[in-house]
């Protein structure tokens, strides 16, 4: 274990931790790296947060090339604003459209104080990013469907889209089947299987749907599935997201 500090001398709280062959960043904020002050705007906080993420992976002896998955948490959640703010910064930081980490946007009204954005990330030092796209099932944002790095696979939120039509079917049951089907395709393309999945998260519009989602998940894997209630886009009622880890070496 190694703690990673953004500004060793003046900020004692680690921004990230290196655990064996993984780096996890859990306290990346929009504070100005020089002064530790939080700027007023989401734009400025977001730009700082991405620079702070870069500094954190570099302090851990890795680089932006080793980042697999990023989570953005916003105090005020608005898809359009976030896309307008984050995506330009994102494509500027990750210029190669064939090799980008995947990301997700999350509402987090509980963010404390003046924090408008909070960033967490997973990185795998020494491993090249292999960004995977599933044919006919793509995010509109500049991210891949999943990222394989060494023995790890980080999924995006697996869209409940039917690969035959490129559209979300109507209703929970077919959506659940498509989201899990797309997760299976991603695992296949990464040369992995459901047995390698170590965690799942279900994003759902209605907790009443959880038992059905859990039972479909359990039919695939014994990995824990954590629910989060979240206003997913359009007619979508469910997304699943997962991390998978194969054997070392």
């Amino acid at each position: 274990m190694q703690e990673i500090f953004a500004n060793q001398a003046h900020d004692p709280i680690p921004v990230a931790v290196k655990l064996g062959d993984l780096i996890h960043g859990a306290r990346v904020t929009g504070a100005d790296p020089a002064t530790s002050e939080l700027p007023d705007t989401l734009e400025a906080q977001s730009a700082n947060a991405l620079q702070n993420m870069k500094a954190a992976v570099e302090a851990a002896g890795a680089s932006l090339d080793n980042v697999g998955q990023v989570s953005f948490f916003f105090k005020n959640f608005s898809g359009a604003v976030m896309r307008d703010v984050i995506n330009p910064l994102w494509v500027e930081m990750f210029t190669d459209e064939d090799s980008r980490p995947t990301y997700k946007f999350m509402p987090a009204p509980e963010l404390p104080g003046d924090q408008q954005v909070h960033v967490e990330f997973w990185a795998v030092p020494g491993q090249k990013r292999n960004s995977i796209q599933i044919p006919n099932v793509a995010h509109t944002n500049p991210i891949p469907f999943g990222v394989k790095m060494g023995r790890y696979l980080f999924s995006s939120r697996c869209l409940p889209m039917d690969p035959a039509t490129g559209k979300n079917p109507e209703g929970l049951d077919p959506q659940l089947s498509c989201s899990l089907g797309n997760a299976s395709t991603l695992l296949d393309m990464a040369g992995m299987s459901w047995g390698d999945v170590t965690q799942g998260r279900a994003f759902l519009t209605d907790m009443a749907n959880l038992p059905k989602i859990e039972s479909a998940w359990k039919a695939k894997t014994s990995a824990p599935l954590a629910p989060v209630v979240y206003g997913v886009g359009g007619n979508a009622q469910v997304y699943v997201e997962f991390i998978a880890a194969g054997k070392a070496g």
Partner: peptide, 27 residues
Amino acid sequence: MPATLKRLNEVYPSDVKSTVPLGLRIN
């Protein structure tokens, strides 16, 4: 890091509307 990861997951708050993980579990 052990060769086999039986557990690798983020630990989430029990409130399903809170989204930010509380921590990590690795084995």
